[in-house]
């Protein structure tokens, strides 16, 4: 287990380093600079500003400086938001995004698991078909389309919930729903397949041959064993959620990180794009790392086999 953890950790660091490097050089290739909209500056003023941003030095020096700053947790300053540090901008915006993501993942996995389990237990019944169809639709309809329908029908037409903004729990319901549908669909589909496979395995027969009741077999043997592989989809799910927050926050005008990221793309605010990109990457890589470790802990086959080495 220790060896496994260290191996994962090394991969994580290498990947992060590569992402940081790629981001840096890509940004160097980009057209535009902090001065792009300020043609009236004199050459002297330009030089001063370039120096202030550290852009007067040769690229390799900038790269080393950039890496050094990264290690200190310094992501640079924004071109657009009054030279505020990127870390501060991220810190300001992370709250709503985190809340949204958390609500969506809790709601999504719970509903998804229940749907998947029920569909597997009632395999080939109407309930199973319905759950399967809902899952395919949930996977197919893009979250921004769904958000649009919710916003129009529930917000504009029925006026049950506020159309946009972020002023209390009521405001979080629609974005959470829009975001969680994909999670529900993915979890339900995956859980159903896993559960069906487990239910047809020999040890379920052994358990039934012991005289354990059907409910007991499902709860003690089937669900537990199907849940373990479900952990693996948490990683891809985190990626989906992140993608989702970019558009959902924009649609519902949620003052979150995603909304800021989309805006900085529109404004060519490179330090913010770069910083947020790195932040997202680090977050996702960390989630995947945690998922790997969690999987090792939950599955005795990995936990104990790894431990002996």
């Amino acid at each position: 287990m220790a060896r496994y953890t260290i191996q994962r950790l090394v991969y994580m660091v290498i990947t992060l380093f590569i992402i940081a490097t790629v981001t840096f050089f890509l940004m160097k290739l980009l057209p535009g600079s902090p001065l792009q909209n300020q043609e009236k500056l004199t050459p002297e003023q330009r030089a001063i500003i370039l120096k202030e941003y550290g852009l007067d030095k040769p690229v390799p020096v900038q790269y080393v400086q950039y890496l050094g700053n990264l290690l200190k947790g310094d992501l640079g300053v924004s071109f657009q938001y009054d030279n505020r540090p990127v870390t501060e901008l991220i810190g300001d915006r992370i709250g709503p995004s985190a809340q949204l993501g958390f609500q969506a993942i809790v709601l999504g996995t719970l509903v998804g698991l229940v749907l998947g389990i029920l569909a597997a237990i009632r395999h080939n019944s109407w309930g199973d078909y319905t759950a399967t169809v809902i899952a395919v639709i949930g996977i197919s309809v893009p979250s921004f389309v769904l958000a649009g329908f919710l916003q129009y029908f529930i917000g504009v037409k029925l006026q049950w919930l506020p159309v946009a903004f972020w002023e209390g729990f009521k405001y979080t319901i629609m974005p959470t729903l829009a975001l969680s549908v994909g999670v529900i669909a993915n979890t339900a589909r995956f859980m159903r397949t896993e559960m069906l496979e487990v239910l047809s395995s020999d040890y379920i027969l052994t358990a039934r041959a012991k005289g354990i009741s059907n409910a007991g077999v499902i709860i003690k043997h089937a669900i537990r064993n199907s849940l373990i592989p479900v952990i693996t989809i948490l990683g891809p799910m985190a990626v989906n959620l992140m993608t989702g927050t970019l558009v959902i926050e924009k649609i519902f005008a949620v003052p979150g990180l995603g909304e800021q990221f989309v805006r900085s793309i529109e404004l060519n605010d490179y330090p913010v794009i770069m910083g947020t990109t790195l932040f997202y990457s680090a977050l996702l890589i960390f989630v995947i790392f945690i998922v790997d470790i969690l999987y090792g802990i939950v599955d005795p086959r990995i936990r104990l086999a790894g431990g002996k080495k």
Partner: peptide, 19 residues
């Protein structure tokens, strides 16, 4: 491949299109 897969897909796509 393993390293490439570690990089969040969407981030790569966004950076690529920015350039």
């Amino acid at each position: 491949i393993e390293i490439l897969n570690g990089i969040p897909y969407l981030i790569m796509v966004i950076l690529f299109i920015l350039i």
